[in-house]
């Protein structure tokens, strides 16, 4: 490589990193340092370092309103856990059949499900339905809603991946006398592990960050989710930015951990999902 080219690349590196830090990382730095200040200092919204560090802001946020943030965390995690577990089982089964079979009934069903990738959910009729089933504002209700909304995307990911599982493996299972149920769960499902990992991460992030559906279907002081409490804090702590920012940081930490561990996987999963869609 000639010298001119090398310098060009170096300049690119420096300018690129500088822009990335200023545009994409700076806002998080701003949140973090202001979450450590006392109330008066934080309200200046400056980017200066805190004169004294107040870690107790985080405790204050957690204790606020009778540990509401902790309860919300518990709710959010349970919703995420149940919804993702069910999604993995039902969508892997469905994606398997949709990919392997190509007849009229299956095609109609899969076309209907794929409509869900585009169309917005009908909110008030859903509330009526949940009320009729006596599951409005319950954990079960919101879990079912999240499952239904993530089904199209999850099924699409599984359908794409099943194509790479050789049919010969299934035949070997049948020769050994397995039922189709056993063949799927003992042979095919373990082979879907890579896409299952992608599904877990993407669906978990989406459900954890969801605001709109909990707002409609899971509202109320007792059964809030983290995003709902964060939104309510916005009004409550309008003049206490340090606490508001501490709450933002607390709620973003799980995503940061997931990101640091699965960075590559998330990005690859996004591509797989998006390009096939």
């Amino acid at each position: 490589m000639n010298k001119k080219k090398k310098i060009q690349i170096l300049v690119g590196d420096i300018v690129g990193c500088a822009l990335a830090i200023i545009i994409f990382i700076f806002p998080f730095y701003f949140m973090f340092i202001n979450s450590l200040k006392d109330r008066r200092e934080a309200n200046k919204l400056s980017i200066a370092f805190p004169t004294s560090i107040h870690w107790e802001n985080y405790l204050d946020v957690l204790k606020n309103n009778n540990y509401q943030v902790l309860i919300a965390f518990k709710n959010s995690f349970l919703i995420m856990l149940f919804a993702v577990a069910v999604l993995i089982i039902v969508c892997s089964m469905a994606g398997y059949v949709v990919q392997r079979r190509n007849d009229k009934v299956v095609n109609i069903i899969s076309t209907l499900v794929m409509l869900g990738l585009m169309l917005p959910p009908a909110i008030l009729p859903t509330i009526k339905l949940l009320q009729q089933l006596h599951i409005y504002k319950t954990m079960f209700g919101i879990v079912m809603i999240e499952i239904a909304l993530q089904t199209p995307f999850t099924l699409m990911l599984y359908r794409g991946f099943v194509a790479s599982v050789p049919k010969e493996l299934e035949e070997a299972g049948y020769i050994d006398g397995c039922t189709n149920f056993q063949v799927f769960f003992k042979i095919v499902f373990p082979l879907l592990k890579p896409v299952s990992a992608t599904v877990i991460i993407l669906d978990a992030v989406t459900i954890f960050n969801d605001f709109q559906n909990p707002l409609y279907f899971f509202n109320g002081s007792k059964n809030a989710t983290v995003q709902l409490t964060l939104y309510n804090f916005m009004g409550q702590f309008a003049s206490e930015y340090n606490l508001l920012f501490a709450d933002v940081i607390i709620i973003t930490i799980p995503m940061l951990i997931i990101f640091l561990i699965f960075n590559r996987k998330i990005v690859d999963g996004m591509v797989a999902g998006a390009v096939k869609g």
């Binding site: 398997y96 009729p125 339905l129 079912m144 499952i147 089904t151 189709n180 063949v183 799927f184």
Partner: peptide, 22 residues
């Protein structure tokens, strides 16, 4: 082998909680 019943749990949840309200 590729029983339609494999498809049903996902489709029923989707139909009840998405399609019917829509």
């Amino acid at each position: 082998i590729y029983s339609i019943w494999f498809l049903m749990p996902a489709f029923v949840i989707f139909a009840v909680f998405f399609l019917i309200p829509v």
